[in-house]
Design a protein around this nucleic acid. Structure first.
Lengths: 148, 148
DNA sequence: TCAGATACGTTGGTTCCACCAACATTGGTA
DNA sequence: TACCAATGTTGGTGGAACCAACGTATCTGA
């Protein structure tokens, strides 16, 4: 029987592998929530951990560029998950802060994200999951998160 | 000074990490070749390793759906990297095969892909790279490559 | 045998995301 | 003061994963 696996040139290419795993994650995510919720999750997680931030700073911390941050924040604002106001100390900036509803929304999204994670990594034992996460973190830490 | 790192909720989420690493890989790739070459690379790698395949089988082995395979094969055909003919044994199928020029193109793309890989994984020693690759492979192997 | 289900390729369209370009406003600096 | 940099905003491009529908060809089972 023909093994329908990917060719070796791809199987050994981390940049290809991560793309596939990421797509798998998106697919599992889509089964539980609208796909756009992933951006919401990232922004709300940053606001929860760091408190209020400007849009540009959100972009820098999350690796998103400021064009996209704008759209995400607008969506969150329309849904009451976030408040946006001009920074009186620097009127170029918009200060973004999570609302209570936003934090509840975050908790919900986080629970679903952990479910996805479990399903995605079903083949790995806890030690391997920890290893994988640490290696990916190391890779990311070595590259500046460029966009602003 | 404020550490501009991503929040812990994301840093520990493999599905988010892989997305970021994949984006980094795409960025490094884009610096060396047109982005669309990544699809070309995948298809040509499969043809080199397995020989001629139908479009549907290409999709199954690579995890692409047949709509996108069609576009990629058309592009490769227009550039003389691939030949496409109807399977006489099953006239529903198109048999796709790499040309000599296509295989040379593949070698070129592969060399660049390995350069990208080196730059992407600069923070990992050879043992860690091997570990990361093996863990990702294990994750992928546990999930059926769905599209056709 | 033949009628229905299935597989394949193709076209056309949607959504998400990364990215680029340009602009007005505001703040910092030489 | 004159210049430059940062910010938010709008509008647009391209890649990739999807979904829907269609015609053609093959297979299956009644």
């Amino acid at each position: 029987m023909t093994e329908p696996g990917p060719p070796a040139l791809l199987r050994t290419l981390v940049s290809w592998q991560t793309g596939r795993v990421s797509t798998l994650g998106a697919r599992l995510t889509a089964a539980r929530m609208p796909l756009e919720a992933r951006s919401d999750f990232a922004v709300l997680a940053a606001l929860q951990e760091y408190g209020e931030l400007s849009q540009a700073e959100l972009g820098r911390r999350l690796g998103l560029d400021r064009n996209n941050v704008n759209g995400i924040v607008t969506r969150l604002e329309n849904n009451g998950h976030v408040e946006r106001r001009v920074d009186p100390a620097d009127r170029r900036r918009n200060i973004v802060d999570a609302t209570d509803a936003g934090l509840r929304y975050l908790d919900d999204l986080n629970a679903r994200a952990l479910d996805v994670q479990d399903e995605l990594l079903i083949a790995l034992d806890p030690g391997e999951r920890q290893q994988l996460q640490a290696l990916l973190e190391k890779v990311l830490a070595s590259h500046p998160a460029q966009p602003a």
